[in-house]
Structure formats: C-alpha cells, structure tokens
Design a protein around this nucleic acid. Structure first.
Lengths: 285, 285
DNA sequence: GTTCCGCATGAATCGATAG
DNA sequence: ACTATCGATTCATGCGGAA
C-alpha cells in the first residue's frame, strides 16, 4: 500500500476512503476538541460534535482490522458552567454504530493548564476511550510492564542523579524510561491510569499530548510492522511514535501547514536515526 | 430537626421523605454498584440501574439546598467484556431531572485492587460526579489548598529528612497531611484529580472509599455546622467524616447491620474526642 | 560538566465589556 | 437579550543562560 508512512492532506472522512477495508491495526487520535481551536481548525460546536464525528468513525471502523483497537483521546469542555455531554453522547453513539466500548483509560496530567475559577479547579485529566470491532482484539500486556513500585527509592539514594526534584515516582507508569535497564528487576503490570506531563515548551509546534501517550498504546496493541493510523494527525506525534517503534503509520490532516510539519518531523527522525530508517524500509511495501 | 446526627434504617427513597425540603448542604454518597455487591445489597442489574436510581435522586434534589452540592462516587463495571453505559446514561438522566452536571472529579487510587485480566489492566480510578441544583452553589476553595509543588525539591535538598522514598509530592492533594504544618509556606489550589489510597486494613467493615475522600468534599462545599447526607451510608464513613469536621450528618441505609455498625463507629468517635462531641451538641438542634 | 535560577508556554475558564 | 472578544488568573515543565 503506497499510502504507508505518509501524511495525507484532506478531511479524513474522504481521505479514509482510499484506505482498504481491515488494513489498520491501531487508530490513535486526538480529534479537535469542540469549539476549542476555533482559529486553527474551524471549530465544531459542542451541540453538533456527535453528528460531525460519526461519519468519520464509520470509515475508521471500516479500515480497522477486526483484531485492531481504536483509542480516542478527548475531554469535554465546560459550557455555561457545567460539563457538556457531547463526549458521553459520543460513546453511546459509537456503540450504536457497532463499536464495543472496551475501556476508559485516564491520562492524569502532571502539568495541567493553570488558572483559577470560582466554581472549579484546574482540569488535570483527559479520557482515553478504547473501542473495538471485536471482543477478541490483539493486546500485548507484557510490552508495557513497569518496574515494581520502589523505583523512586532506588533512584533517590543514588546521589549522582541530576534532578532529584523531579519525582516521577510510582504513579509514573514507566514512561520515558528505557525498560531494558530494568531487566532483572521485578516487573508489574500498569493500571488504567497514565500519569505523565504534557510537552509544553515546544519550539514551533504545540503537541497536544506527549509522545509517550501514543507510544504506550502502540506498544500495547500492535507488533513491529503493524500499521497505525491517526486521522487527526496535527503535528504528527502519533506518526512519530509509530516510526520510532518500528510500526508503519498513516497520518491525515485537513490543514496543509500541519501536514507539512508532520512530514518534516517524520523525515528528520528517519534521517537522524538510520537504524530506524532501515527498519522502516523493511516494513514499507 | 431530630433526624440530625443519626443513622436511619430503610430505603432512602422512603426515608428521605421525612427530611424537609432544602435542608441539606451536601450529599456525598457511593451507591451500591450495579450487580456488584449482590450478596449484601440485593444487587441492581446494570440495565435497570438508571430506573432504580432516578426516584431516589428526585428526593435528594428536593432535600438539597439550592446552594448545596451532590457528589456521587461511582464507576461502571465491566459487563461482557466492555464497560457498561449505565453511569453515563445516569448522567444524562440526572440532567433531564434538572440537575446541573458541574464537574467530574477523578479519584486516582494509589493502591488499586489487584488482579490480572487478558484484555485490560487493573481499574485504578473512579468517578466523583458533582451535580448541583443551581449554578450558584457554595464552595470554599481555600479549605482544600495544598503546599506548593516544589515540596519535593525543598525536602530532598535537606538531607536530614528520614524518608526520601515517600514522594507523595504534588500528586498528593494534601491528604493525610496536617495542613497547618504548612502555614507560612505557599499554598496552591489542587486540581480535579484526587490521588489517595484506599483503606484496606479495616477490621470488620469494608469501606469502599477512604475517609479523606468525603472529608475533602465536605471541606470544599460546606461550613462548620452545615448538614451532610449520605443516603447509602454503608459503614458510615461519610457520617464519620462529617462528625470529625464539626458538621451535622444524616445517614441512611437499608441494611440493619450496617446501620448498627455506622452508629457504633459514630458513637465511638464522639466518646473518644470530647471536644468534637461538645461541638456536636452545639450544632445539633 | 554541574547546578541553579529565570522565563516562556500551554486542548482553560470566567466575568466584564463591547457590538 | 444574545454573541463575540479580551484580560486576569495560575503552575509544572523544560529550556537557556549564568555561576
């Protein structure tokens, strides 16, 4: 498939039609949040969000393998003093479309957006909704195992560590660590809460989620050589994660500048790490 | 009101009718989870959960003051390999009943229930749904402020500290700490994720949530002398929390052995801490 | 090379002001 | 009255520059 390892320009509802049935192993995406990035994305009104999303989800369901998973990163915004219901309505609508709602993971954000309001605190978590076509989906739980809880203790006793102050501790689900360093230690399974920080000090592009987020689900739900799709690719973080893990990727975005940015980030990565580029060639057709 | 500071026996749908309109400042409760505690509570089938809950919520809405809040601790269970939708359907139904869905807090459990399943990880979080009758509800955000985030940094640079390994730091929302120790330090507001442990070492009763959970919301949404209601009191943790914080409480449970247990726990607390008992007398009518 | 400090930067929300 | 825009608020992170 010549679409592999490219970023495609257009509305995913149309672009997805180029992709064959049952050809994708994992869809990981963070769609534009309702009415949120009005300036850059057109802005979907909360009341119309479900109707806007459903036809796209229909195509996603078609291209996903029966063994594949669909992970949706989303959070409803506050409208008129209360949480809007478009996300939970979307869950019900996707079920009606034939998806199984397998699980709801939580991304507990280390650094949430600051602010103070009279009736609420800072929003420090987002949903990661897992949907499946079949109850018999691929999963590789061992791939995301983490060192047993007392790692912070070991680390802090080693005084040569640079930044004692950053306590990633037991709530950290093993992100950003080279797990191979922990071979020989006891590994345990993580939970359905992922505790990690947003990457906010980016130079040009503002990734809305850290790369460790798609990486975690790519490791959990796919094998080397599988294909990952992000129909709302944005700055291309999902594609980059797939590339770094030796998976194929397909990205789609409706905004030309983001397609170019994603392609550029991916190209840089391929050049910078030849071993990955070689791997990549091996798996692309 | 002679009902104050008692645990009442019966189905809350009926018992609540004894309570006057607009007389409760906070409802904090963890209702029986669908089909979960079948042996001890009768067990409500997931598909009937909303219908079962709604008439009770109607009475709760009647007794709650317009300035009050209703906090519902709940989590949907897995049915047939996927998350059941009764909780999100309940949110929609409560909105239709006239409640505002102000916020969804997350309880991120430090120590979640152990176990291993082939298609999911341990469930490490629960929902804390905040509903209101009015958008102009009482809230005292200062009461739950926590020490500023660089706690770990300050602490770790002080090498005389005994327990470096206890990095509860910023994800800990101040639970279990005596905040008065932090006077003079900078305090910041917490987020909408509460990170605390379950209490697993109970003697006779199995509390489904730690006492710090109701305490946090009692401090946030009520003042001394206000009245807290738990219509599914269970082992009485909410009532105990209210008592310890100098609030009045009303507990309701349908199971006689739990009413007795709650009453016993409350009595012990009143005897053990005379100052609280005195306060209590002052505020009960 | 390390450590420390300062600073910009966010999937935000509310209330006031302006059209 | 209803919608659109703008300023104030707030804090963990990661970067760069300085000691």
């Amino acid at each position: 498939m010549e679409l592999l390892n490219t970023i495609l320009l257009g509305d995913c509802e149309q672009v997805l039609q180029q992709i064959p049935d049952n050809s994708i192993d994992l869809i990981f995406t963070s769609p534009p949040y309702a009415d949120q990035r009005k300036n850059t994305y057109g802005g979907i009104h909360p009341d119309q969000y479900v109707d806007w999303f459903l036809p796209k989800a229909f195509e996603m369901k078609r291209v996903l393998k029966p063994s594949g998973s669909f992970v949706l990163n989303i959070k409803e915004r506050v409208v008129n003093g209360e949480r809007h219901t478009y996300v939970i309505e979307l869950i019900l609508a996707l079920k009606k479309q034939g998806w199984f709602w397998t699980e709801e993971y939580v991304w507990h954000k280390k650094n949430s957006f600051p602010g103070k309001w009279p009736n609420r605190f800072r929003d420090s978590w987002e949903r990661l909704l897992q949907f499946n076509k079949s109850k018999d989906f691929k999963i590789f739980q061992e791939n995301v195992m983490i060192p047993v809880g007392n790692w912070a203790k070991d680390r802090l006793s080693n005084l040569s560590e640079t930044d004692h102050s950053r306590d990633e501790s037991r709530v950290n689900s093993g992100f950003g660590k080279n797990v191979s360093n922990w071979l020989g230690r006891d590994l345990v399974y993580p939970t359905n809460v992922l505790y990690l920080a947003t990457e906010c000090s980016n130079k040009n592009h503002s990734a809305v989620f850290p790369i460790d987020l798609p990486k975690w689900f790519i490791k959990l739900f796919t094998e080397t050589g599988d294909t990952v799709l992000d129909p709302f690719a944005g700055s291309g973080t999902t594609c980059l994660a797939a590339l770094e893990l030796g998976r194929n990727f397909i990205g789609i975005d409706i905004r030309n500048e983001y397609v170019e940015l994603s392609q550029q980030r991916v190209n840089e990565k391929q050049l910078r790490i030849p071993s990955i580029a070689e791997k990549q060639n091996k798996y692309s057709s």
